[in-house]
Write a protein that binds this DNA or RNA. Structure first.
Lengths: 237, 237
DNA sequence: AACTCTTGTAAACACCGTTCACTGAAACCG
DNA sequence: CGGTTTCAGTGAACGGTGTTTACAAGAGTT
């Protein structure tokens, strides 16, 4: 049944507890509270024992980032699955709402993963749900066509690279799409949508709107409507 | 001449050195390197002496944030003054470019001020240049009119509050504007512009675009063009 | 039973924020 | 001027941190 030896099972269990303790500390008291000694204290062991599992405090924090990304992706996929409309527009809306909801419910995690001047994030974890959905969105012909020459020549190189990333992400889920439905104009709008989605959510989480917003949700909805209109959806789908 | 006593001058000088040392540590080695003992070491004094100037490490960090905001505002105003076109559209472009340039040149400062889940930032410092310029922008009739009923009813309350903030910010500089030129539709677009500007800059600083962008500047320019178009300027002014 | 590998410990080092009793000199005042 | 107050700065200490090292003790293997 369990291929793993007793020792391997114990080790895996301890590792799980370490991650769990680190996560709890982050949520409860912020990044600076994620301390080797605090984690060890939660497990009833001593700090140096953690070095049997992670090379350094920094490595543990990186692992924590990965875990957070995985959890967020799971939450987003769950909210996406809950949408039974079958309409891509509704699905986009659902995922964007899910992203905002997750960020507001997990500000410390959001700050650690999305607003740290660190090495680039694990792309496998991070945006796979976004990429997957963006690919579907583009593949569906609901999106208005944007001619390639709408986007400046200098952007082509980067957008072609992103095009490849999208094709790979979608094909990983078994769907293949042609270059004709995935032109650079559409891709450019996906990037612009990410800018606005991230911008709004980060401003809200960090409280950096230029005035006190008492009712941010309709403002988000309004931004989303505009975004979906710009990207080629009718405002009321 | 100098009203201050000798002691007061020495104290002011030391305080200046403390801020300078803290800033240097932040720039060189990140937020976690801004340590009371490290600052004291740079000044050739001991750590407890710093408690004669700041109540705690946290208070010192807050002061650091204020200094950063002041410096950023100065940089933005400088780039604004360098624009001699007299066209508000060019001025907006200049300030947005200045903001991006400053953020990329000062990633640690940007992260500390704009992406920390802390108490709301000192509004006096932070966006005064944005507010000032946004006020001018709105006051100028170059901006296309957006009817008030374009924006959802639920947003009115918050936008009216922001309207007041803008009027105050502008009037502080001696300019008074009427309610007719500063309607809610325009204000809404200012907020949306801030979302996009902040979103792009933060994504670039933190490296969180969904693909490796080799040439971010034209992408920023492109976003800016779109933003100015949406806000009511012609793409080529 | 002997041996190795693994997981944990305890002690130590250097660093951190913070407090407290103290010093010495500048500033003030009669 | 002499006495007193004010205050920047010190040194020692406390409890906290990441990390290394030497060591113990149990699990797995032969």
């Amino acid at each position: 049944m369990t291929e793993a030896t007793r020792r391997e099972r114990l080790r895996a269990e301890t590792e799980r507890e370490i991650r769990q303790a680190a996560r709890a500390l982050l949520v409860e008291n912020g990044r600076d509270a994620v301390t080797l000694r605090a984690i060890a204290r939660k497990l009833g062991i001593t700090a140096p024992a953690l070095y049997r599992y992670y090379d350094s405090h920094d490595a543990l924090l990186r692992q924590l980032c990965d875990d957070i990304c995985a959890d967020m992706a799971a939450a987003l996929y769950a909210d996406l699955a809950a949408d039974t409309s079958g309409e891509v527009g509704c699905q986009v809306r659902a995922v964007c709402h899910a992203f905002r909801r997750w960020a507001l419910a997990h500000p410390q995690e959001f700050a650690l993963v999305f607003a740290s001047p660190r090495d680039p994030i694990g792309a496998d974890q991070f945006g796979s749900v976004f990429l997957q959905l963006a690919g579907q969105l583009i593949a569906s012909n609901l999106v208005a066509t944007h001619a390639d020459d709408d986007v400046p020549e200098v952007l082509h190189e980067d957008l072609v690279r992103f095009q490849q990333v999208l094709v790979d992400a979608v094909s990983e889920h078994g769907v293949t799409i042609g270059d004709d439905v995935l032109n650079l104009g559409k891709i450019y709008h996906v990037v612009q949508s990410w800018v606005r989605l991230y911008g709004h959510v980060a401003l809200e989480v960090f409280g950096r709107f230029p005035f006190a917003v008492s009712n941010p949700e309709p403002m988000f909805d309004s931004m989303l409507d505009q975004m979906l209109t710009d990207i080629g959806f009718a405002e009321n789908e």
